[in-house]
Amino acid sequence: MKDFTKMCLWVSAFALAHPALGADGKLLGTGGLVSIEGNAGGGITPWAVLAGYGENDQWSASAAVTQVQTQDFRLRSASVALGIYNRVELSFARQRFDIPNDTLGQEIFGAKVRVAGDLIYGSLPQVSLGTQFKRSTDANTLAALGIADTRDVDLYASVSRLFLQGPFDRSTLVNATVRSTKAQQTGLLGFSAKRKLVFEGSAALLLSRSLALGLEYKSKPDQLPGLREDAWRDVFLSWFPNKNLTLALAYVDLGAVAGKKNQSGYFFTLQGQF
């Protein structure tokens, strides 16, 4: 925790001290967050946007640390993402999931390609296809819980559009994702035998040029016998004082997790983009 705080302060100080460092081709806020799974999006759902502020002649790198705390669980994630010419995104996330008396975790290798459209301009919204390879770092612990499948692949398609003049004349970002997955609690509790399609959506209203208020909804397959899983939801406030720093704070409702009901709490993420 001390290291986490120190790292947050270091990243913030660095990002604030250099307000125009690195890739800057996208409009403020339109690089999104690096999600808890490493791909660009909101906190818990992917968007069709690619990580960072690089436009189609720029590279950009993003790094994020995230903590989710509920009554019985804590999920921490460290992730990095590379945006290449606003066309391809490569990402990696390492998650640690503290459950009562034990710890689980997973690694997520991600790739996303923008296949059509644009977030803001022209007639087509931005459409991206993505994949994630997820691998448990604690296969033995999962085996002890009776979960055999500890690695698998997610596939998803996302569509995103920023409406410059949205509700209340505020710019509004809308995202929808369809995901094919076998993951149980996103893979933290391993994988089931059957692939399912799930929907994820989010919307954010830009209250000002550097502040967004948003909602996210992530449905999940719910295929783990005896341990029901619910959709994840959150309400977030995201602040991007410049193109190098993004902070987000959310109230999350994760529903039932690993036998514990009504898990809710906070979500905090801090990230740097260059």
Binding site: G25, K26, Y121, Q165, R170
Partner: peptide, 27 residues
């Protein structure tokens, strides 16, 4: 280039704020 168009947008947003145009009208 796409990013140059966005720089124009940013400079335009800044200009509109500087002459006192509300964000809703800007959008």
């Amino acid at each position: 280039k796409e990013r140059e168009f966005n720089y124009f947008v940013e400079d335009s947003q800044k200009a509109m704020s500087e002459v006192g145009i509300a964000v809703g009208v800007q959008n």
